[in-house]
Design a protein around this nucleic acid. Sequence first.
DNA 1: ATGAAAGCGCTAACAT
DNA 2: ATGTTAGCGCTTTCAT
Lengths: 341, 341
Amino acid sequence: MKPTIKDVAKKSGVSIATVSFVINNSKPVSVETRNRVLKAIKSLNFRPSNSARDLVTGKTGNIGFILTDDHFLRTEPFYTRIFLGTEFEARSEGYYILLTTIKRDFKETDNLPRFIIDRNVDGVIVAGKVPHCFIERLSASNLPAVFIDYIPPKNDYPMVLIDNIQGALMATNHLISLGHTNIAFIGGGTEHPSWVDRLKGYKQALESSNIPIKNSLIVANDKFQGRQNGFNSAKMLFSKKNNITAVFAANDAMAIGVLKYLRDNGKRVPQDVSLIGFDDIEADLMLSPTLSTIRVPKLELGTEALKLLVNVIKSKKSLSKKILVPVELIIRESTSIYSPK
Amino acid sequence: MKPTIKDVAKKSGVSIATVSFVINNSKPVSVETRNRVLKAIKSLNFRPSNSARDLVTGKTGNIGFILTDDHFLRTEPFYTRIFLGTEFEARSEGYYILLTTIKRDFKETDNLPRFIIDRNVDGVIVAGKVPHCFIERLSASNLPAVFIDYIPPKNDYPMVLIDNIQGALMATNHLISLGHTNIAFIGGGTEHPSWVDRLKGYKQALESSNIPIKNSLIVANDKFQGRQNGFNSAKMLFSKKNNITAVFAANDAMAIGVLKYLRDNGKRVPQDVSLIGFDDIEADLMLSPTLSTIRVPKLELGTEALKLLVNVIKSKKSLSKKILVPVELIIRESTSIYSPK
DNA sequence: ATGAAAGCGCTAACAT
DNA sequence: ATGTTAGCGCTTTCAT
């Protein structure tokens, strides 16, 4: 049978209260008793029962991690890495993570994740864009929550966000510094804050270098997803004659699509066109040339979110703090100096 | 405050025992009392506390899901789909899933997942290949466990496996039925049972059609992973002159690598070379031609494993049942009739 | 068919 | 600094 706190108490000749104090560091215990208790714990291989502890503290020791199924199943290990960051940090904080997905088109009548209904989590982390009606329902549940990489409509809730504007500035400035002026932007729709900010950064960079912003060089819609989007957008841009010498794709998935289009159509990267992405997904090893990009510290997004959530849970305050995680310019093979033919 | 069983008892004018009987269907309760209790539960929005219940039953209501980090982060959403199957089934069985990764090179001295150390799961599901020393440690923990898509060395433990031989037979026979006879096999190493079986099926198919097995047409090593492996293996095969007209790649990731190699080297698929994979991963939409393959029902692997584990947990018997999940031939564009030039 | 009550393993207030 | 003890919310045995 699993040893209990009683066994430890008996073995070390103290009361169960003292054992509890030692386990939780909740009251001063003399060094020698503490050592005796610790020894007993070790020799019995004692672990406090979660359910007993949770029952009396009213906590669950669990944290829910929620994202849409399409995000979870994405080809690029973006959200899975974020999850890993969260799970990793959870270990050291003593929490368990319950991962669940909701449908991309979560309906008002759909069930909330079971751990919310049963209130079997102390808080939840929401990663990526989720339907508004889900957020409303979550809100109504009054659970502490932290959002990663998405700004919920009401903009309360603590968030961990990517510094998208800064990243887009860095990417675009990198191309500018290489001598490019005809720089295209390929992005997603306008309903995700990230796409909006990455476009904003692109425009800001051009402006500060006094390069005119041409709408004909900007394609931003979300009729398609990821690579397919990049491919189609590139087709739209390059089928017209507009002497594009560099492309900033708002994420790596799209950049890979662009790359594919350019290859299929006899344009060399970076000789004819420089290409930079965003995210630094663990791209295909086979990708050639390797992609210059803006690195998003995915693990860090996850760890920061967990820390933030634990703070909220412990402080009971609903601080609506925003953490902006810095990004990094990664120069690889797909960008090079502008050299007109 | 969260309502308790007491509130329900009070509201419906019965004892908490009766409420418990209703909740768990553990003793006959008269229809009218049952209805009264049910009404009270609903009106109070009562949910039994997991920790209280777990404390008295000695269960945790949790199941651990373990895989190596590289599997979890794989480009192809293979294991993530399996997880989703498990998680889905867990919902209806009333379990929560604690997902955690271990390192691909898990060392003897590494910590076991926390939920095992703390015994905070009633059982675990292990997906994909994991280090032997991990399995030994898991074994020592005496937790019920089920393996998915991997046969642990000692071969005890219940397993949910893919019918690899059957799948490889179907794939190879498909190529044979199209008139191909010079069929190459590209696989992984020999230390994963799946690779071994897929090769076995390939050979069996050739034999039953009286096509000689040529070792020169077989490449099976795991110096590289996934696509890269396929690419390199294809290079090895096609740089010699051996009139290969069809390739069976032991998984889709490798098949995509093969496809890439063939494209880069002016071979058309399927006109010059037919290509079939295995797994039916949600391949790149941009893949052209679309890949014929053997579909592995990934969600089903996950759901079956959970059902099996729950059985083991409930029956307390360590039945070492093996479930062989059937696969399906999916014919798409990458395979066509052999037509010599 | 229903109820009373013991007790699961722990925390924390109170007592010493 | 350490011990005693009352619960936390539930399941389950034993009465009725």
